[in-house]
Amino acid sequence: MASATEFSVPRSALTPALYRVVARGRETADVVTLWLESLDGERLSFRSGQFNMLSALGVGEVAVSVSGSPSDPGPLRHTVRDVGAVTHALCSCDVGDVIGVRGPFGTDWGVTGNATPHDTVVVAGGIGLAPLRGAVEELAAAQREGAGRVFVLVGAREPDQMVFLDDLAEWEKAGVVVLITVDRPAPGWSGRVGLVTTLLANAGFDARHCRVLICGPEIMMRFTARALNELGVDLASIWVSLERNMQCGLGWCGHCQLGPLLLCRDGPVVNYLEASALMNERER
């Protein structure tokens, strides 16, 4: 099938590149992973934790973190939860459909090309594992090469809402400590039941010398950071991924402000020392 893209030069940062959905997989009832290839063969270079603006043409544009690993030579990977008009359109895409992609934007987890001898603890709530997936892939590979240990702690509402189950099994096989818990067990669930914070105390990481990457609902991140701090983790060693209404990714539209930050530019990944005050300010 013929495809055409025409751009005036220079291409505006607000003009997306066109990508075709080359594969699609359902993670949970409302979460879909799309694999995307650029129509003009371009490869997007990104760091784990960054996001792209994805356009469902005619519906609109939305910020979605890359869920693939920078070292994965395959198609660009995004995992989307169906929560609004644009994400619904994206989740409804079929293989062969064309969407717009602009990016990558924002800060990253600091994992890409930055191995450490210390432990790295990844804490995810629900779909929050998606922006962390690439980082875990990189960390697991680095651990095999002798870098610090990796711990992946995941909380989900119900067992069937746990994303990337295959990946979790792979990571565990590769030597990553994987602990999962759910809020509500289902028949047949023999694992942990409780808040993700209950996984922290016995996970076995070195609280004094570790970095922690958290992504999930803001309340979950606040409670997790507090629990980590009680275990002796320095707040400056904690990073969180924050979310606001991002409409341009470029620092131009003003919607994603959180106090001094423009989250599309200064986030989404923010050190907890800075984030904690902002997360506690009401209606900011």
Partner: peptide, 17 residues
């Protein structure tokens, strides 16, 4: 109790994407 309260919020049921 605090963990239970947070679970009562059903956080992951809240959209995030």
């Amino acid at each position: 109790l605090q963990a239970t309260r947070v679970r009562l919020l059903d956080l992951y049921g809240e959209p995030r994407g």
